[in-house]
Design a protein around this nucleic acid. Structure first.
Length: 575
RNA sequence: CGGGGUGUAGCUCAGCCUGGUAGAGCACUACGUUCGGGACGUAGGUGUCGCAGGUUCAAAUCCUGUCACCCCGACCA
């Protein structure tokens, strides 16, 4: 590949639209261009890198025994009605109409399609296990696309679906994918953490997310330095002290006026000075149009994912002020659960046995003190409902937990039989009995992974591609391009040799000053640069500069061998 | 969907407050000089000032509406 003939529109200045370093570099290095919000064109170098990631994914999926297929992106909505996701996933579904006004959906994922396929083709336990995967464009109506390829309306995903006859076999399939994912991300040069994750709307028993630690990530994970426990913040729990302040209540509840105080912080400040940890926070959620009270300690935050599990409901929402007033007779800020018997009361475990607490009186402008859980508040459900906070202790080993932001690049789910039941993916077992196939599903955001590689591998000058995903491994940089000159002759020769040896190489044959070529090659981030200039050539030398390493001067005749060594290709073959 | 911000040359942005007919740097074209870390000179091209109304003798500038994009939040298999 010759630089002068491809298209690598590097930018000296940062486009205003980019916020995070990887997005800036994708644009500045001329890898992608935006068509419109959440939709990007891959330019030649960006596409090359993307293909490398795809190939790694493909190789590792094949190695793990998965079978590559390609399913339609355009899908009939009936399939989605059958699985129930036409409703539950409606917010992310893109829809289209044909000329007869018949409706179609653009696939945000392919559980329905693959399960329908398996329902038709797999009839016997003898045909199991099977794992099908594809690398394909997905469409999601994201509320807010952002950060370039990180969250886009259209993106490339590798999705795989395993089908097993037994739970134990499904476990094995899951394990294979888990191991394959570790290999994939390692080969991409990414440091990832596998964390326990919430299964969300997807349903299913358990799951792991593969996270790339990055301050710009949209997720938060909880890590234990001691025992290696790691979980998505939505799922994470910790060992926490209970709020037992005394052996017995110090007195009966007592109402006191708190005009204008409607927040935990307000009550914690003067003149009241009730520490947040001695307050009970009362939230009202509406579940299937009925109010539910949620109690937390004043200094804790509600984890809605945990609440969803506790409620066993997927549709719930915080109550509106009018609804709350109608239910409890007071507005948010003065709410409490004392004496409330009409509504279910879900309390966080941390409040168990708490005495001498302060909470709202269900009368605007008043609070109650000396509130004792159990005596004054009848909790109907005890649950872990709180968000873990940085520095709390691990429930396994007692070491402090750390909260780290991260980018989710992969997700493995044990799905169970939700889709096989809905779409009739049954097989006959050894006893001739009809059974639903047990499924797993496994996703990798390929385009997101590409961006994560950049997010994790860059410096002030540009991208630092790992060799495995670099658009080109070597940039041959003649500092003079005079056609008959020694510099260009040698550059052409080495370029041809490298190409013949199967190395992805680009020849910077542009009529540019050396400074421009150096800056550009570093911005785009080619792992090795071979510079040929008249000065060093006069001494019989060329320069090899690893993108992240120190410059080496080598004898011209040793250049190939040295390069191939750095590329891990062994000694150069003789032409 | 709520809050905030921005739309002016391919890119980054100034001009808007205080109305008078559009600018800088980078990029681009030509020529010359230069040539190992984003060169310099000379000349040149480049705009429905996001769109639509309104006010005005006159609107990039003031007003109204609208669209798009960005940020925060909500949401997110």
């Amino acid at each position: 590949m010759r630089w002068s003939q491809t298209l690598i529109p590097t930018l000296r200045e940062t486009p205003a639209e980019a916020e995070i370093v990887s997005h800036k570099l994708l644009l500045r290095a001329g890898l992608i261009r935006k068509l419109t919000g959440g939709l990007y064109t891959f330019l030649p170098m960006g596409l090359r890198a993307l293909r490398k990631v795809e190939q790694i994914v493909r190789e590792e999926m094949d190695r793990a025994g998965a079978l590559e297929v390609l399913m339609p992106a355009l899908q009939p909505p009936d399939l989605w009605r059958q699985s129930g996701r036409y409703e539950t996933a409606k917010d992310v579904l893109f829809k289209a109409q044909d000329r007869a006004q018949k409706e179609w959906v653009l696939g945000p994922t392919h559980e329905e399609v693959i399960t329908a396929l398996v329902a038709g083709e797999i009839n016997s336990y003898r045909q199991l296990p099977k794992n099908f995967y594809q690398i394909q464009t997905k469409f999601r109506d994201e509320i807010r696309p952002r950060f370039g390829l990180m969250r886009a309306k259209e993106f490339i995903m590798k999705d795989a679906y395993s089908f097993d006859a037994t739970d134990e076999a499904a476990q094995v399939s899951y394990g294979k994918m888990y191991e394959a994912y570790k290999r994939i991300f390692e080969r991409c040069g990414l440091k990832t953490i596998a964390v326990e994750a919430d299964t969300g709307v997807m349903g299913g028993k358990f799951s792991h997310e593969f996270m790339v630690p990055a301050e710009t990530g949209e997720n938060e994970v909880v890590l234990c330095q001691g025992c290696g426990y790691s979980a998505n913040l939505e799922k994470a729990t910790s060992r926490f002290p209970h709020s037992v302040l005394a052996d017995s209540p110090s007195g009966p509840t007592e109402k006191f006026p708190t005009p204008d105080v409607t927040t935990i912080a307000g009550l914690a400040g003067p003149p009241y000075k009730v520490p947040a940890s001695e307050q009970i926070k009362t939230l009202v959620y509406v579940v299937e149009s009925k109010p539910v009270l949620i109690l937390l300690r004043g200094d804790d935050q509600l984890n809605e994912a945990k609440l969803a599990r506790a409620l066993g409901a997927t549709t719930f929402r915080p109550g509106e002020p009018e609804e709350i007033h109608a239910a409890l007779g007071a507005h948010p800020g003065s709410l409490g659960a004392v004496g409330v018997a009409r509504y279910p009361i879900y309390a966080d475990e941390r409040l168990r046995g708490a005495l001498d607490m302060t909470t709202g009186a269900n009368e605007d402008g008043f609070h109650l003190r000396n509130v004792a859980i159990g005596r004054d508040i009848q909790v109907s459900h005890w649950q872990d409902l709180r968000l873990v906070q940085d520095g709390e202790l691990c429930h396994h080993c007692g070491q402090p937990l750390k909260i780290q932001r991260a980018i989710e690049v992969g997700h493995v789910f044990k799905l169970g039989v939700k889709y096989s039941l809905a779409l009739h993916a049954f097989f006959l077992d050894e006893a001739g009995k009809q059974q639903p196939a047990i499924m797993g599903c496994y996703g990798i955001g390929v385009t997101r992974t590409l961006q994560a590689v950049i997010e994790q591998n860059n410096d002030a000058n540009g991208i630092l591609w790992p060799l495995s995903v670099a658009p080109c491994s070597v940039c041959v940089t003649p500092l003079s391009i005079a056609p008959g000159g020694k510099v260009m002759q040698l550059a052409e020769r080495l370029y041809t040799q490298l190409t013949d040896d199967g190395v992805d190489v680009i020849l910077d044959d542009r009529d540019e000053r050396p400074g421009v070529k150096f800056k550009d090659s570093e911005l785009v981030g080619f792992p090795l640069r071979l510079a040929i200039g008249e000065k060093s050539l006069a001494a019989g030398e060329v320069e090899i500069k690893p993108r992240a390493g120190v410059l080496m001067r080598v004898k011209t005749e040793e250049a190939m061998e040295k390069l191939m060594g750095l590329l891990g290709c062994g000694p150069a073959r003789n032409p």
